[in-house]
Amino acid sequence: MKKDRILDVKGLKTQFKIDKTRVAKAVDNIDFYIEKGETLAIVGESGSGKSITALSIMQLIPSPPGKIVDGSIELDGIDLLKLNEKQMTETRGNDVAMIFQEPMTSLNPVFTIGTQVSEPLRKHKKMGKKEAKKQTIELLKLVGFPRAEDIFHEYPHQLSGGMRQRAMIAMALSCAPKLIIADEPTTALDVTIQAQILDLMLDMKKKTGSSILMITHDLGVVAETADRVAVMYAGQIVESASVKELFVNPKHPYTVGLLNSMPKIEQDTERLESIPGMVPPAHNFPQGCRFAPRCKHAMEQCTEALPELIEDGLNHKVRCVLYDGSGKGVSHVK
């Protein structure tokens, strides 16, 4: 691994046993890395394996039926998959923290916000009750609660979704983790609140310099928050590049489809396209390129073998026969 990588994932495979004969290959051999202080976005449609990727890093895959079957996940040089459960317990919340998609259900209804936000401090930093409380109130102020002392004693049901997500962010930040994973942190919120939470995350990033794995299906969020982006489809990464490069020069037909389905100010909405069809189920991926059944450029060789992930020398990678030299006609993708 390179020294400046805070996270380095290699060959990760996470599968779910569905029944005696079928396995769902939710995450199927993915590689990606995050540099120190960088925000990497993973983008893809529902069911493409984004959350499972995140939960694999945390080792919170529901097991059974889920299992990480192969790969390595190095966090600051330590392979998390080699840690035992006790060591992993010491890592979660301390070195790597996670913010979830559903703020309404992600907090325990019977404990106060203060109790819940201070728990990582008490556990990992061995703080006493008083010290943890002081620190927690500071954190609550930091994430934008003006009445932090009151909020400390309130219960989740007394807070709105946006406020709960702020509390979750405070909790994630509490031990100053090396990496924060945010799994669609704004998806469940109202549009105006979404913007506030994204602003808060950007602000926090500026203040703490933390590295972030931002999971989203919204390219708007990618544009706003990320430095680099990996596009995920059917358990695999099909394209990755810097955000700027990806928006200016998308290569994979799936990425192009996602970009075309994104509303743009200068376009009239009539031209908005959507990608026909759906992500195939993880226990029944098509042979060859997994996007082939939905791809308008699909040709015979696409279904023969899985295309390799190819790099163009400028850290822009794509998994499509149109670019691996064997295909013909590259320019007409857009």
């Binding site: 979660r92 923290a97 979830f100 325990n108 404990f111 728990e119 556990k123």
Partner: peptide, 29 residues
């Protein structure tokens, strides 16, 4: 199986706290 138990584990709480604090307290209601 609820989300907040996943949160509790994501914080790094050990199996004891997860079970006897976060889970039991809700299950006893």
């Amino acid at each position: 199986g609820s989300d907040f138990i996943r949160t509790a584990r994501a914080k790094g709480l050990g199996p004891g706290s997860v079970l006897y604090k976060h889970t039991l307290r809700n299950a006893l209601i």
